[in-house]
Design a protein around this nucleic acid. Structure first.
Lengths: 218, 218, 218, 218
DNA sequence: AATGAATGAGGCTTCATTCAT
DNA sequence: AATGAATGAAGCCTCATTCAT
C-alpha cells in the first residue's frame, strides 16, 4: 500500500520577498497572486501552456505583461505553482482514501470519486498535465510530473490488485490497463462535462463506476 | 443510420502545379511530399502543432526550412493534409462497419476495433486532434474537425441506442456518456501502448470490449 | 601652473528637502545616504554602471528598489554624486601638491603618491571613470568628466614639462605620452592590488616611481 | 619557458550549417559573417558588451535584428568569436617570439612590439577584455578569458625573470608587478592613440621600451 | 528542388521609475 | 522612510514565411 510522498514545485511566495511577516498582509498578497494564477490556469487549460502568451494572462488580469514579474519569476513559475498545488492536493486526497483501508469496492468507489472530483475542480491543471506534459516533462524543474504520474499509477494498480486478490474484482485483467481505461474515461468525461454536459462530477463518477463494475451489456 | 459525408481539407498536390503531368515525376513528387508529411506528422504528434517549428520538420527531412515551401503552402497546409487524410480514412471505415448492418454486439465490436486500429495507425493525427483541437478549431479552414467529431459521435450514439433498443445493451445509460467513456479509454490506451505497453492494438481493443461489456467485478 | 576649478555634479541633499532643518535628523539622513552611496559605489565599480540595477543596490542596502528614490532622484544622480565627490577630492589634492611648489623630483613623487592613493581609496569611482566613461560622457550632466580629465592631464604635462626644462627629466620624451604611461600603469596596479596583490598602495607607488625614473635595465 | 595552448571559443561556422562544402561558397559565407563581426567588434569596443544592443549591430550591418540570428547563435556567440579569434592570434604571436629564444633584451623588445601591435590591431577585442571582463568571466563559456590572461602573465613573468637571472634586467623588482605596469601603460597608450594621438603603434612601443628600460630621469 | 539570406511580427523578460498607502 | 504594485520602454531571441539565385 504505497503512501505518496510530497509533490515538487517551488515554494510559493511573492517574488524575492524578504519576509513581510504579518498574516493579514500575506493574505492580501496571496489574493492578488491567487487571482492572477487562477486567470492563468484558465487560459493555460484552454489554449495550452505554449500557446498562451504572458500578455494574454496580463491582459486578462488587467495589468501589463511586465507587471506579472512582480508576482512571479517567470511563466514557467506560474505553471509550476498551478501544477504542484493541484498534484499535492490530489495526492493528499488519494492518501486519505488509501489510509481509510476500506474494502476494495468502497476504496475503488472513493478513488473514482476523488479522481472525478479532482478533475472537475482542477480542470485547468489537469488539462495542462495532459496536453503539455510532453513539453513540460523535458524541463528538469517539472520532473515531479513524471514522478507523481508513476506514484498515482502504482497506487491505483496496487489497489486494483488487492481487489483481485480478495476476490472483489476479476483476476484475469491487467490492472495497469484497467487503470489506463479508467483514467482515460475520466479525463474524457471531464471535458465532456465542461463542454456543457449536464451532470455533476459525482453523478458522472457514479455512472462510470457502474459501467466499470458491471459493463454495459444488458 | 447516418452515412458520413466527405471530410474537408484542401486538395493535395504539389504547390504550384503548372501541369507537369508525367506520371513518373508525379510519383517522385508524391514520394517526397509523403516523406515530409510523415516526418511532420510524427513531430506534430510528439510536440503538438504550435510547439513544432518548420525548421524541425525541415531538419528531420534533410532540407532547409525555406525549401518546405516548395512542397507545401504553409505549416497549416501540412496539418490540414495530415488531419483530413486521417479523418477521411477513419470515417470511411466507420461507414463500412455501419453499412454491414450486423447485430449490435458485432457492430460494437467492429467499431471498437476500428477505433483502436485507427488510433494506433494514425497516432500522430489523433494526438493532434486531441491536443491542438482548441487552437485549430478556431481557424475556419479546420471547421471540419468539429464537424467530423460531431458526426462520429452521432454515429456511435445512434449505434449504442440501437443496441439498447434491441435489448443488447443496458437501457439505463446515457449513450453519449458511454461514447465519451469509450473514446477516452481508447485514447489513453493508445498512449499507453506507444509508451511501451506490450500488447497489440487488437488485443487491447478486445480487452476494452470485455471490460466495457462485462465490467471488472468478479 | 594651472589651478583646478571646481568639479561639477549636482548639489547633494535629500531629495525633496522641504527645509526640515534639524541637525540631528540631517545627520541621520546623511548617514543613510552615505551608506547607500557607498554600497552603490562598490557595485558600480564591480559591475559597471549600466550593468548594475537599482534593485541590486536596494537589495544590498536592505530596502526595496522604489525606496531608493526617497534618497536619490535617479540612478544617474547616484553616480554623479560618487564621481563628483571623488574628482573634487582628487583635484584638491593635486592642487595642494602643485601649490607646494617643490622641486620636480619631489613634486613628481607627490603626484604619483596622490594618484596611487586616490586610486586605491576610491577604487569604485575610478573604475567607473575608466569603464563607463564612454557612456557617461555622452550625457551632458557628466560633461565635467571630460573637463576634469583634461585638467588633470594638463597639470601632469605641465609638471613633467617643468622637470624637463629644469633638467630633472629627460627632454626627449613626449610628456603627454609619459603621463599616459603613468596613468595606465597606476590603474593596472590598482586592479592588481585589489585582486589580492600583497603590497600597499604606497609601496607600489614607490616601486612605480623607481621604475619610472630609472628603468628596469640592470 | 611556457608554450601557450590553444584558446577557447566555439568553432565558427554558419549557424546550424550541415556542411555546404565548397571553399568558394565558404568564403562568401565568411565575408558576410566577417563583415557583421567586424561591425559588432567596433560597437562592442566603443560601448561595451552589455551596453551594445543587437539592434545597433543589425542597424550598422544594414539588416534587421532578428536576421543576425541567421549568422550567429546569440550575441554571446559574437563576442566569443571576436575574443577567441583575437586571443588565439595574440597567443600564437607570443609563442613565436618566445620560440625564437633570443637574448632577453631582444625578446623583451619583441614582446612589447607584439603587445602594442596586437592592441592597436585588435582594439575592439582588447577593449572588451578590459571593460567587460568582470561580466564575461562569470559566464562559463568565457572561462578561457581568465585562463589566457594567466597564461600570458606567466609568459611575461617567466621572460622577465630570465632577464633578471642573466643580468639583463634589475633583479630587485617584482616581475609580476613590472608586467602589470607594462600592461597598463600599453593599454592606456592604445586608447591615447585611438583618441587621436599622432604616433604609430610601433613608435609608441619603442618609446615605451625606452622609458621602461632607462627611465625618465635625465 | 533546394539554398541562404532576410523579413517582420511577436514572445519572454528586465529594468528604471512612479505612486498610493 | 519605506512598501508593493504597477508602468512602459527596451532587450534578446524565435519563427513562419519570402525570394533571388
Amino acid at each position: 500500500m504505497p503512501r505518496l510522498s510530497t509533490v515538487g514545485g517551488t515554494t510559493s511566495s511573492t517574488r524575492r520577498g524578504r519576509g513581510t511577516s504579518r498574516a493579514a498582509s500575506d493574505a492580501a498578497v496571496s489574493e492578488r497572486r491567487a487571482e492572477i494564477l487562477s486567470v492563468a490556469a484558465d487560459i493555460f487549460a484552454r489554449k495550452g501552456y505554449m500557446n498562451t502568451t504572458v500578455r494574454e494572462i496580463a491582459d486578462a488580469s488587467g495589468i501589463l505583461a511586465g507587471s506579472l514579474y512582480h508576482h512571479f519569476d517567470s511563466k514557467e513559475a506560474m505553471v509550476d505553482e498551478i501544477l504542484s498545488t493541484f498534484l499535492a492536493s490530489l495526492v493528499a486526497q488519494y492518501d486519505a482514501v488509501i489510509a481509510a483501508a476500506d474494502d476494495p469496492h468502497t476504496t475503488l468507489r472513493n478513488l473514482v470519486h476523488t479522481l472525478f472530483h479532482g478533475l472537475s475542480e482542477h480542470r485547468a491543471a489537469i488539462t495542462l498535465t495532459h496536453n503539455d506534459s510532453y513539453y513540460l516533462e523535458q524541463i528538469p524543474r517539472f520532473a515531479y510530473l513524471q514522478d507523481t504520474k508513476i506514484q498515482v499509477e502504482q497506487l491505483w494498480v496496487a489497489e486494483l490488485r488487492r481487489g483481485m486478490a480478495t476476490g472483489a474484482f476479476r483476476a484475469d485483467l491487467d490492472p495497469a490497463l484497467v487503470w489506463v481505461f479508467i483514467k482515460g474515461a475520466a479525463w474524457a468525461a471531464v471535458q465532456y462535462v465542461s463542454d456543457g454536459g449536464s451532470e455533476s462530477s459525482d453523478a458522472i463518477a457514479d455512472t462510470h463506476l457502474d459501467v466499470l463494475l458491471h459493463g454495459i451489456r444488458a
